[in-house]
Design a protein around this nucleic acid. Sequence first.
DNA 1: CGGCTTTGACCAGCGC
DNA 2: GCGCTGGTCAAAGCCG
Length: 104
Amino acid sequence: MDRVCMPEDGFVWRKYGQKFIRNIRKNRSYFKCQKKSCGARKRVEWCNSDPQNLRVIYDGSHSHPPPISSKTSDDDHQNPSSSIANQYNLLTQVLRGLNDTTTT
DNA sequence: CGGCTTTGACCAGCGC
DNA sequence: GCGCTGGTCAAAGCCG
């Protein structure tokens, strides 16, 4: 199985399905937030020839802080509770905007 | 042993 | 009514 790279965004997702969408001629993976109290969902689709062009689509919102247990930067001496969550929120919005390729 | 991942099959809605 | 697609669930295997 050609497992592409895992788009880690600071949250932990659990893949619960993967299918090839012919409508767009691309692969689509379905991810769900591990948190039970979190109904956040994420969809990832990439070209069958360009697994590097990942398209992430976020659905719903998280109700818990991002378990960022990776990379111990030296500037994260703050309290990653809502600030980071807010940043992530913006990120999702940006990704949503990338939904269209009509750029430039 | 537990947790996580992967794959197949089923269901529902739509078009013809 | 039939076929097709899209979306989700369930089971099993692997690793530490």
